[in-house]
Simulated scan of single mutants.
Amino acid sequence: MQYEGVLTKMETEFASPIQYYMTFENSFLNVNQALDKNIEISFLGYQCLNCSKKKKIFRQGFCYDCFYSSPAVGDWIMRPELSTAHLGIADRDLDYETRVQLQPHIVYLALSSEIKVGVTRKTQVPTRWIDQGADEAVSIVEVPNRYLAGITEVALKDHFVDKTNWRKMLQNEVVSLDLMAERARIFERLPEEVRPYFNTDLNEHFVMKYPVLKFPKKVTGLNLEKTPNYEGRLVGVKGQYLIFEDGTVLNVRSYEGYVIGMNIS
Rank of each mutant, 00 (worst) to 15 (best):
G133W: 02
A137E: 03
Y108I: 00
Q103L: 04
D131E: 15
S112C: 15
K116S: 01
I130L: 00
E114C: 10
L111C: 08
P104L: 12
H105L: 03
Y147V: 02
L109E: 05
R146S: 04
V107M: 00
Q132R: 05
E136G: 04
R146W: 08
G150C: 12
Q103V: 08
K122Y: 13
Q124D: 08
V143D: 03
V107C: 00
G150R: 09
L102E: 05
V125M: 10
S139A: 15
L148Q: 12
P126N: 13
E114Q: 13
D131K: 10
Q103M: 13
E142W: 12
E136K: 14
N145I: 07
T120E: 13
I140S: 06
T123P: 09
V143N: 06
V125H: 02
E153D: 09
A149R: 01
V143A: 08
Y147L: 07
I130P: 01
E136H: 11
E142L: 15
A110T: 12
E114L: 10
A155G: 08
G118P: 11
A149P: 02
S139K: 13
V107R: 07
Q132H: 08
W129C: 11
Q132K: 02
Y108H: 01
V125S: 10
L109Q: 08
P144V: 00
R121Y: 05
P104W: 12
V143M: 01
E142P: 09
A134S: 02
S139N: 11
V119C: 14
S112A: 15
Q103Y: 01
S113M: 04
P144R: 00
T152R: 10
V143R: 01
A134N: 03
I115Q: 04
V125G: 04
S113H: 02
L102F: 00
A149C: 00
E136W: 08
R128H: 10
V141G: 00
E142H: 13
I106F: 04
I115T: 15
L148S: 11
P144W: 03
T152F: 07
E136R: 14
A134I: 00
P126R: 14
R146K: 15
I106Y: 11
P126D: 12
N145Q: 11
N145K: 10
P126W: 14
E153R: 09
G133R: 09
T152C: 09
L148A: 12
G150A: 11
I115L: 04
I115D: 03
I151H: 06
E114F: 09
L102R: 02
V138W: 04
Q124L: 06
V107T: 02
P104V: 13
E142I: 15
S113N: 07
W129F: 14
A155Y: 07
T120C: 14
P144G: 00
T152D: 00
S112Y: 07
I130S: 02
I151P: 02
W129N: 11
K116T: 06
T127Y: 05
E136Y: 13
L111P: 07
H105P: 06
G133P: 10
E142Q: 15
G150H: 07
E114Y: 12
D131M: 07
D131P: 00
L102V: 02
E153T: 06
I140A: 08
V117E: 07
V119D: 13
G150P: 10
T123R: 15
V141F: 09
V143F: 06
D131N: 13
L109V: 01
A134D: 06
